[in-house]
Design a protein around this nucleic acid. Structure first.
Lengths: 217, 217, 217, 217
DNA sequence: CATGAATGAGGTTTCATTCAT
DNA sequence: GATGAATGAAACCTCATTCAT
């Protein structure tokens, strides 16, 4: 006979990760409580400790999952025969897609990056280096090919990541913080339209356009 | 002679704000404890409540000060007779200067923006709109003058703010998180040099260059 | 063997309620600290929040328990075939018995009533109405039967409740506040004897006598 | 030249006492904060310490003032040639008048009595004995004269004091706690009318009637 | 005498974590 | 594996009191 509830263990861990991602996104590491995470995940609090370990381990796991998932999406789009320009497009769309499906993810990622890597577990540091390295590799290839200008990779990385991550967040706040968004809109007029669109037509497209124009020779 | 009870009040409030700014920057709203803020500011904890109010009020005050200071720096550089391009330079250098003198400030600001304005006091929302509006105005002027392309103002705003704010943070973490930075450096080689330079020659200059290239016709 | 974490939950909640009752009685809501309550109850402070909620909820729960217990005692004594006079006796003895076994209870109850119901949880207001309504019903029955005079129910209710509750308290203070009691006694001579007696022979009996004489035709 | 503000000192102390009375009535000794008292009194907090002393002294002073004022009102009505019955009327009306003009006063007094005198300053204990002794004297006179039954003086004292004090409080809560009062009224119907009336016609009259009926031979 | 400021102690509440079942 | 309960530590906040001006 099965134990209590008979849930598949993977399920539980997955639910924990998803709940934690959501919780961490709202207020960073310190802003989420284990109680809240457990409730969001629909899991008993002690289960988190049993399956994952303490809060810091959970944080690391969440970051790892996020970055690996993002890397996966990017790799799904990358083809060896693409031009650097197309590869950059794949990179940005890969991140944007993650944002689209799991809005909080990049916020957590950005938060981690903004800490300068301090206090992050080895594993996550490696992950960050990986995704950042991918961008640098693409840029380098473009420079070698004489298509791209040489620019600071970190700056570009931050620009891409933050604009996508935060833009989505502001969009999410749209519904509830009417006045805030309203004031922004008043100023921006036609420029600032946040309606849902296809990935390429939406924010990701705009970001891509800006970035390409910035680095193309 | 001055005793215990007769400190200049402005001094105290100022010290509180500075301590709080530093503390909030490290871990966002939830990541800073009032105890820690008090210690950083060299002020009794109860004094914070006496002069400022609860933690949320303090957060609001800090954000307000940050943005107003940044606006001040930008306005110091702005001249009516400047070209849109020069105005944009003033805008970016104004933010960069704030980063330079008070590294944590923009990080806090970024964190606030990334919340989509939710939970922020009226005043701060107004402040954010102000500084964002300034960028939009500059961009609009450039578009009218036929110099700039039309781009999404919010995206550009986020790009500028985040790259400046976080880049500085990563730089700050440099000393302590050798491995992290080291790994980044290995990948980036010549591109990624973070040594202190003049504002224009440093990150701010790079950001400016990228942004200008991105929007100039 | 029973360990630390496996205490029967009912036990804990019961212990909390008892400790809280005692603590609240001494100084009202504000006069009791949660620390003190926890110590009195022999329970960890955080357990109170886990099982009951915040201090106000605890206060509400205590009041609810008190009144329900008192109602229970009264109902134990009430018989449908009793005369209104006998019913009144049951009512007063029921309250007196509660006082006897849990001296602090009615003090808390009185304190709550004296607040006019302001700030009390719905549930408790309902409870108070219930126990007050019982008295009114008894009085009404007596008036219908031509046995009782018509008197203000609230006044009588307060007279009964307060005299029983406070009298007990003064009695309790007896041991420690010798001078105070002594002065009272000096004045009162034979009238004021507080030695423990049977319920009917003690204060309850005196209160009953006074009340009956006051309302009987 | 006069000092800061040039207020008459008596004024300040009087304002303090009045503010404190109001504040203490709401939640007993522990329920009122010195800050709140100062604000209610319209006086600087440090002034309280300068003029009166610490919180406990203030509490004692307030109780003293209350009881002395009540005693004063009773004595204004008492005449040596009154019958015991008339004297009792003076006693009750004296208290009722105090309640009428300063509703919170008796609540504080009741609270003090309900503590059994514990922790009260000598002076106040003496005051309480005085006002209680007055009642006992009146009762004794009535018994000697063969008009009154012998009853427990303390019980009667508590009945008179509490019914007047609390009834007024419930009346005061009337406006804000509609439902509460409403429920009471539903039960009590014609018996329970709290509209403002002349002292004798109002609650005081009812209390007097009940008490007289209870003790008259 | 009045007042704004300061502050240690203590209040209420939350948190991360552990444990027995 | 799952869960309700327990708990020390630390969080936020308030309070009574003092002091220099």
């Amino acid at each position: 006979m099965r134990g209590n509830g008979g849930k598949r263990p993977n399920d539980t861990v997955q639910r924990i990760i998803e709940g934690a991602t959501q919780a961490f996104a709202a207020g960073g590491f310190a802003g989420a409580s284990v109680d809240e995470i457990a409730k969001t995940a629909g899991v008993n609090k002690a289960s988190i400790y049993y399956h994952v370990g303490d809060k810091e381990s959970l944080y690391g796991l969440v970051l790892h999952e996020i970055i690996q998932a993002t890397l996966g999406r990017i790799n799904d789009r990358l083809r060896p025969d693409q031009s650097p320009e197309e590869k950059l497009k794949s990179y940005i769309l890969g991140i944007a897609e993650t944002v689209e499906e799991h809005p909080p993810l990049p916020a957590v990622m950005m938060w981690a990056v903004s800490s300068g890597g301090q206090g992050l577990p080895e594993m996550v540091v490696g992950d960050l280096v990986q995704i950042y390295g991918l961008l640098v590799a693409i840029l380098d290839e473009g420079v070698e090919a004489g298509i791209f200008e040489r620019v600071d990779g970190l700056i570009l990385y931050l620009m891409i990541l933050c604009s996508l991550a935060i833009h989505k967040n502001v969009e999410a706040a749209w519904g509830e913080a009417r006045e805030f968004a309203g004031l922004f809109q008043k100023l921006d007029g036609t420029l600032f339209n946040l309606v849902g669109q296809s990935l390429e037509g939406g924010v990701a497209g705009d970001v891509l356009k800006i970035v390409l124009k910035a680095i193309k020779k």
